[in-house]
């Protein structure tokens, strides 16, 4: 794995290289070089099997992180190529020409994160949801709980109690000890 990373880093600028296991390494490559690097890995280094593509929302950094996880069936090890793209304008070069399965991943990411892959086939087709006009649902700022409360009909037949707060009300009422309790009691 070390040699591979050395070889790669002589060609591309690698960041965040993490040897997660003996047979798994992650490295971040710039958006411009990523597809080239993935193609190189596929055609020259034997990483012919695309295990998966994935996307992580790093909302606090304003980035989406794409992942191209490649497997080398001969050496039996994996490399995860990570690409950070801008969250405001999420666009990435399509890789659908490299594997027949890529367009599905890209279509899914378009739906669930709103990432655009120009030229990727059937990108605009619905994947798992139909007629979705909310925030793309895998984004961190989409709150499933809030959505459920808003969309469905809570029965309203449940009520819970916090043990500490309940005991305060029962055992020592009118004795607020913290500023918050004083505020609550008022």
């Amino acid at each position: 794995m070390k040699e591979l990373i050395e070889k790669l880093s002589s060609k591309y600028e690698l960041q965040e290289v993490v040897y997660q296991r003996d047979n798994l390494v992650f490295a971040a490559i710039s958006k411009e070089n990523a597809i080239e690097a993935v193609t190189y890995l596929r055609d020259y280094e034997g990483y012919t099997h695309l295990v998966m593509m994935s996307c992580v929302d790093w909302i606090e950094d304003g980035k989406y992180q794409l992942l191209y996880l490649l497997h080398n069936p001969k050496l039996k090890n994996d490399i995860g190529i990570k690409v950070y793209i801008d969250r405001e304008n999420p666009e990435m070069v399509s890789a659908h020409h490299l594997w027949k399965s890529v367009w599905t991943y890209q279509r899914e990411m378009h739906e669930s994160f709103g990432i655009v892959f120009p030229g990727s086939p059937r990108l605009e087709e619905n994947f798992v949801v139909e007629g979705w006009d909310e925030t793309p649902f895998m984004r961190r700022d989409f709150d499933t709980h809030e959505y459920a409360e808003k969309t469905y009909f809570p029965r309203g037949n449940r009520k819970t109690n916090d043990p500490a707060e309940y005991m305060r009300k029962k055992l020592y009422p009118n004795q607020p000890v913290t500023a918050k309790q004083r505020k609550d009691d008022k």
């Binding site: 993490v18 997660q20 296991r21 798994l24 992650f26 295990v51 998966m52 994935s54 992580v56 992942l67 996880l69 994996d78 995860g80």
Partner: peptide, 20 residues
């Protein structure tokens, strides 16, 4: 903070999970 990919052979083939 970290990430990993874990795989196994299910009855249908390679399954795995990317965990961040």
């Amino acid at each position: 903070k970290g990430e990993t990919y874990v795989r196994l052979e299910s009855g249908r083939g390679e399954m795995g999970m990317y965990y961040v």
